[in-house]
Design a protein around this nucleic acid. Structure first.
Lengths: 118, 118
DNA sequence: TTATTAAATGCGACTTAGTTGCATTTAATT
DNA sequence: AATTAAATGCAACTAAGTCGCATTTAATAA
């Protein structure tokens, strides 16, 4: 996967890809810093590289943190503006926007639990 | 509009609402700081207040800045990951997600111009 | 209209996610 | 095994957004 894109294969990169591959939702640096053996700078340099190589995608959440994920099938992510939780929405929404290339779809609002609280 | 929500009516708040009402795309503090007579802190305090009162919505873009807008009709915003431009998409996408309240929809990818360049 | 007071504002200091420069280490090739 | 360009760690830095506090202003009461 890494080599396919002409990137050199390092310990840190394998670790990062593995974490993202097995994650059930997008992850921020903060989410996984304790599981990472690499430095913060390396994390961000590699995520940038992987994004450029189109191995991963990312988005900014409500909490000012960037979340990274490996897109399996294009599906929207839901971000709760109250509890900041992130959820993969199962509905495969296939947008065809003429001329645009779509990398990610994010829907913001209140998740069912937070909506009940009001 | 401000008074309707039980907020007191100030110079700064009128200014802010007016700017957002007449904008054709979402705006960041950086976009309009030169047109604003209020301080940065006041801008952010008022946008937070307006969001809580559901007068405006916002999202984080690719450039680490937060963009604010007054939602007229729920439509997605497109963010180009190459040139960071933000565009309102005309297609009214009406999602009905059971149990969720939707505040904004953001689609990230390459805009037509940036896609041509590759 | 003026006096009162709670809320709004400006300013400067602060926070923190992410970035950068540079010295050191490591992966890929000869 | 030797070479070298690329990858990494560390520490210093950047910048969007936040916070505390003194001052000003909007809303209400007198």
């Amino acid at each position: 996967m890494i080599k396919e894109k002409g990137l050199s294969y390092t310990q840190a990169r394998e670790e990062l890809i593995n974490l993202l591959l097995h994650a059930s939702t997008p992850l921020s640096y903060d989410n996984i810093k304790n599981s990472l053996s690499m430095d913060k700078a390396t994390f961000y340099r590699n995520t940038a590289l992987f994004e450029a190589a189109e191995i991963i995608s990312s988005f900014e959440s409500n909490d000012k943190k960037r979340y990274y994920f490996i897109e399996q099938n294009l599906h929207p992510h839901f971000i709760c503006t109250n509890c900041n939780s992130i959820e993969c929405l199962k509905e495969d929404i296939i947008y065809a926007l003429d001329g645009y290339k779509i990398e990610s779809i994010t829907i913001k609002g209140l998740c069912p639990e937070c909506q009940k609280e009001n």
